[in-house]
Nucleic acid binder design. Sequence first.
RNA 1: GUGGUUGUAGCUCAGUAGGUUAGAGCGCCUGAUUGUGGUUCAGGAGGUCGUGGGUUCGAGACCCAUCUUCCACCCCA
Length: 443
Amino acid sequence: MKPRVAKGTRDFSAKEVAKRSYVMGLLRETFELFGYSPLETPSFENIETVMGKYGEEGDRLIFKILRSGDFMRHAAIPAEAKSSEIADKALRYDLTVPFARYVVQNAGQLVMPFKRYQMQPVWRADNPQKGRFREFYQCDADVVGSRSLWQEVELIHLYQQAFQALKLPVTIRVNNRKVLAGIAEVSGVGDRLVDFTVALDKLDKIGKEGVLSELAGKGFNSKELSGLEPAMQHFPDAVSALSFLRTWLAGSTVGMQGVEELNFVLNQSGNAPVAIDITLARGLNYYTGCIIEVTAKEVQLGSVGGGGRYDDLTGIFGLKDTSGVGISFGLDRIILCLEELGRLPENSGNVPVALVFTLSEEDAPDAYHWAFRLRKEGLRVEFYPEAAKLKKQFDYAEKRGIPFVLIVGESEREAGLAQLKNLASGEQEALCFNDIVARLATH
RNA sequence: GUGGUUGUAGCUCAGUAGGUUAGAGCGCCUGAUUGUGGUUCAGGAGGUCGUGGGUUCGAGACCCAUCUUCCACCCCA
């Protein structure tokens, strides 16, 4: 059997880890700049915690974990057994639901509004594609316990700040579930909101005709279709979109509320790259208010982030009246984008600055001592552990990307010096310890 | 979950209409060169052709199943 990673998963080499920690470091800084505190939750939850939170499609994509112990042995499992009977745990599907669980579980201790960020992998039993994995990282920031729309504004600015730091130009598209509900209401299809929004979300991809025919296929009649049509027009700017919606949705209380929320958020967003997009729906069905999605401007790779307001997610776990709003960064897609644009720093930071050669067994103790002392000075130094041919030791340094080598032989030992050689330039000089520390430190 | 696609040496790939012992480039190892690499030259190792069945005198090639890759749909980060 050929060893292989499981479908849709990846190993991360030193280089890749360096890229990932670069991006995660910037995100962490930004989260903390905005006052969010870190949280980590287990990789799996009780199955009832995750099931039913993401819609039917979501449930299908949840990785379920078989009951442990000898459960399987004395149970003849009927084919129609529910997955909850043979599985009692599930890998987390996102970070928001475990967060909601945490908030409810610790409601008494938390200071509200409670702001946390979380950067951990999530798992989905999806078919992999480019930028689409079965194990991937999300980096989330959420606030619960405040209905203020300033939270939405702040999260938009958090997005702006983070993507600026990452040097990845993005468009932040915003919409409001209440606007969508209002459109459905005034068109008389309030009971089929999900079918409507799912189809509308594809406008960019399949065009107006495509959306209309998909809706027709779902049983919408021609009167309903023409009622919904205004939602598919293109607005030149936010002002005209909002004024159109104000007249169109005048008869819907929810709709008007959504319009005003959207208006507030847009007005307060300052120079952030936000755009109103009334076709934006987002699949996760726990969103109730403002919804946000972020796409990279220069790369076509789906969305690199998304989020929104959820008024009652904690209600499912028994805590009423605790509204939350949050955003998510898709770490893996952000890295793919930056990679494609060549904007990840070259210097990975985890390569030694020097390699100490071992010329012979006799020279080894002294050579090792050089490495030992240089490390005490805080320099990343590696010691070549065998008296191999110099060609081999040079090749090793070259391949690891180590810029300097240190050669200590009999003559150097007597003089208390070491030869410091720059591999790129070929320059070599016999220097004392302090000079070598200075050279390597300033490299 | 649906449809298509991919898999041959460590890597990138050849392999013609099924026919001896499956090839190339790069990489790797050894030597020329026992304290100075990147060049050059000479030699060498490395493959149950993703896996399991089947058709055939004979399968890397054809058929079926399965896993994997990438793509589209679904959905999503």
